[in-house]
């Protein structure tokens, strides 16, 4: 299929007098680059089997579906955009969108630069042994399960937890971190970042390790300070990686799972902790369990994300050389 497409693009033969030569050149170039197709084939196959074969399931969003129904047959009950309409007309639609958006955007603003910062800092630490030790420590929280993470949060930030005990012994008032709406987002976001910044930094650390030391030496000769070298040597070196991660993160911005929010949810913080995902989860528990509704919301979410991705990619292309495609 790809081959055919390439051949078609050679229709401009009439414009080019040396047509056959051009064709030959193209063919030669293709031959030279054909090995790339072989290299990419296994990945294409895996994605086809495990991602594309089941993808017809998105059609569930337009059906009245129960498990076991044929997704495409004459017994399928098509309902058009009903599932979407139900979501849009839900009294909670706007609060849910707002809560989801805010927690994602705040999470992104803190969570995106942090690993970059940390990798640059670790990279410019003088003791390499210390740097390695710190790196190991920083990745460790990634292995803590959500249940334990939230368990520790309640222990540390509970009314009689570590933090409140410290505050109280200093004469302060105890504060109910889990009942106040103001505390939910900071707790949620900071704990997520605590858990994952070190892990996300690994890729940047790896990219930094490929920086040519000669560049540093040249900069030193020019009299650059260590800080200047971070800005002018290290940062540009990982800029392509940063751009791509940025685009992909923006593309995944609205995707936030329900597990952690649900674990941290109390009646007190419900006004901010009810997210699209937790709400859908709860709706599935009361009344009719509704696969189609959940799929519709998932699809809606995906579309928002795709739009964001395209915007991010186009913007990035315009202002830098880096883009995803």
């Amino acid at each position: 299929m790809v081959l055919a497409a390439k051949k078609d693009s050679g229709t401009s033969r009439t414009d080019l007098p040396q047509g056959p030569v051009f064709q030959n050149k193209k063919l030669k170039a293709f031959k030279e680059n054909a090995p790339f197709l072989i290299m990419i084939f296994p990945a294409v196959l895996v994605v086809f089997l495990f991602n594309y074969l089941p993808i017809y399931g998105v059609l569930i969003a337009f059906q009245d579906f129960m498990p076991g129904d044929k997704i495409l047959s004459d017994t399928t009950i098509w309902v058009g955009f009903d599932n979407f309409k139900r979501f849009f007309s839900d009294p909670q639609f706007w609060p849910l969108m707002k809560n989801t958006f805010l927690i994602c955007i705040y999470g992104f603003i803190i969570g995106f630069p942090l690993p970059i910062l940390v990798s640059l800092m670790l990279n410019s630490l003088k003791g390499k042994k210390t740097a390695k030790f710190l790196q190991t420590i920083f990745t460790a929280p990634h292995f803590i399960s959500l249940v334990v993470l939230v368990g520790m949060l309640t222990l540390f930030f509970g009314r009689y937890g570590l933090v409140n005990n410290l505050v109280a012994s200093g004469g302060g008032e105890r504060y109910s971190y889990f009942l106040e709406t103001g505390a939910f987002r900071p707790l949620y976001i900071l704990s997520s970042n605590w858990q994952d910044f070190g892990w996300s930094a690994v890729i940047y650390i790896a990219a930094l390790s490929n920086v040519d030391p000669q560049q540093h030496e040249a900069a030193i000769l020019d009299g650059a300070t260590r800080f200047q070298r971070v800005i002018h040597v290290d940062l540009p070196a990982i800029m392509p990686m940063i751009s791509v991660m940025l685009i992909m993160s923006i593309g995944g911005l609205m995707g936030v799972g329900y597990e952690k929010a649900l674990l941290m949810q109390t009646d007190g913080n419900l006004a901010v902790s009810e997210l699209v995902s937790t709400y859908v989860y709860k709706r599935g528990l009361t009344g009719v369990p509704d696969q189609a509704y959940a799929t519709a919301i998932g699809l809606f979410n995906s579309i928002i994300n795709v739009v964001l991705l395209i915007i991010a990619n186009t913007t990035s292309k315009k202002f830098s050389e880096n883009s995803l495609w």
């Binding site: 074969l53 089941p54 993808i55 017809y56 998105v58 044929k70 997704i71 495409l72 047959s73």
Partner: peptide, 11 residues
Amino acid sequence: AMAMLLSLVAC
């Protein structure tokens, strides 16, 4: 289009 095609295969 892709989904339609594949669902036929899968079904």
